[in-house]
Amino acid sequence: MNRVFDQMFGGGGGLARAGGFAPSLEMKETDTGLVVTAELPGLEEKDVELSLEGDMLTLSGEKRQETSEDKGGLHISERSYGAFTRSVRLPWAADPAQASARLRTH
Rank of each mutant, 00 (worst) to 15 (best):
K28A: 15
D47I: 09
M1T: 14
E49W: 08
E78G: 03
L25C: 11
L74S: 08
P23G: 12
E39M: 08
K71W: 15
P96M: 09
K46D: 14
G12C: 02
D47W: 08
G12S: 06
K28E: 15
D55L: 01
W92M: 07
F5H: 13
L59V: 13
G13A: 00
M8V: 02
F84R: 00
H75Y: 10
L15P: 04
G54W: 03
L40D: 06
G20V: 06
E78K: 00
V35P: 03
E29L: 04
T58F: 00
A18I: 11
A38M: 06
E62Y: 06
A22M: 06
M27G: 13
V35A: 10
E29N: 05
S51I: 04
L40T: 14
Q98C: 07
G13P: 04
R17L: 09
L52M: 04
K46G: 04
Q65L: 02
G11M: 08
G20W: 13
T58Q: 05
P96I: 10
L15K: 10
A101P: 06
P41S: 11
S87V: 00
L34T: 07
E44R: 12
L43Q: 05
Q7R: 02
G54Q: 02
V48W: 14
Q65N: 01
L52I: 08
V4K: 00
T30W: 07
S80D: 10
S77C: 12
N2A: 03
K28Q: 15
A22K: 04
R79K: 14
G82S: 03
A101V: 10
D95H: 11
S100F: 05
T30F: 06
S80R: 06
S87N: 03
E69L: 03
R79I: 09
R89H: 04
G61E: 13
R104Q: 14
D47N: 08
L103K: 03
E39R: 09
L25Y: 12
S100Q: 12
P91S: 00
T58I: 05
G61V: 05
S80C: 01
D95M: 10
G42A: 07
V36T: 15
K63G: 02
E53T: 09
F84D: 05
Q98S: 14
